[in-house]
C-alpha cells in the first residue's frame, strides 16, 4: 500500500514537472521561432529586392535555410504557389500559416502580424515591397522583445511551478 502511494506521488511530481517544463519551453521556442521568422524575411527581402527572384522560387530558397516548423510553413507556402492551387499569394500564405500554426509556438498576435504581411507579399513594385519587408521585420523585432521579457518572467516561474505544484499535489493526496 505504502509502495503504491509513493509510486503514484512520484508519477504526479514527474508529470507536473514535465508540464511545467513544457509551458516554460514554449516561451523559449516562441522566441526562437520569431528570430527565425525575422531571419527568413531578411533573406526573402534580399531575394525579392536585390535579385527580383519570382516568389515561389524565392520562398523555396529561403526555406532551405530554415528548420523546424517555420521551415515546414515556408515549404508549404512555396508548394502552394508552385502548384498554383490558390488564386492569390495571400490565400496560399493564409492557408499555409493556418495549417502549420498548431506546430508553431507563436501567439495570436504574432500570427495576426504574419497574416497581414501575407496580404501584401508580392503584389506591388520593389520599392513598396522593401517598405513592407522593413515593417514586418521591425514588428517581429518588437514581438521578440516582448517574447524575451515574457521568457525571463515566466520561464523559471513555470518550471518551478511544475515541480512545486506536483509536490504540493502529492502531499495533499498523501
Amino acid at each position: 500500500m505504502v509502495f503504491i502511494k509513493i509510486l503514484s506521488s512520484l508519477v504526479i511530481v514527474v508529470c507536473c514537472s514535465f508540464l511545467g517544463l513544457q509551458a516554460a519551453n514554449a516561451y523559449a521556442l516562441r522566441l526562437k521561432e520569431l528570430r527565425m521568422l525575422r531571419m527568413a524575411f531578411a533573406h526573402l527581402e534580399s531575394e525579392v529586392i536585390n535579385y527580383a527572384t519570382f516568389l515561389p522560387e524565392a520562398v523555396e530558397r529561403v526555406a532551405a535555410l530554415l528548420h523546424g516548423g517555420v521551415k515546414e510553413f515556408f515549404c508549404d507556402f512555396s508548394r502552394r504557389l508552385q502548384k498554383r492551387s490558390g488564386d492569390t499569394a495571400a490565400e496560399a500564405w493564409e492557408k499555409a500559416l493556418k495549417g502549420w500554426k498548431k506546430h508553431l509556438h507563436i501567439t495570436m498576435e504574432d500570427t495576426q502580424i504574419l497574416l497581414t504581411f501575407g496580404k501584401v507579399l508580392g503584389v506591388s513594385d520593389r520599392e513598396s515591397q522593401q517598405r513592407y519587408f522593413q515593417i514586418i521585420q521591425s514588428q517581429l523585432r518588437n514581438q521578440e522583445q516582448k517574447a524575451e521579457e515574457a521568457c525571463l518572467k515566466y520561464q523559471t516561474m513555470y518550471r518551478n511551478l511544475g515541480v512545486l505544484g506536483g509536490l504540493a499535489l502529492a502531499i495533499i493526496l498523501l
Binding site: V48, I49, A52, T53, F54, L55, P56, A58, L81, R84, D87, T88, A89, A92, G122, V123, S124, D125, R126, Q129
Partner: peptide
C-alpha cells in the same frame, strides 16, 4: 474583379515586383 486580380498574380508568377 477577383478574376482580374487572380490573372494578374498568376501571369506575374505571384511577383509583381519582378515584372516592373
Amino acid at each position: 474583379h477577383r478574376d482580374v486580380q487572380s490573372i494578374l498574380q498568376r501571369i506575374s508568377n505571384y511577383s509583381i515586383y519582378a515584372v516592373e
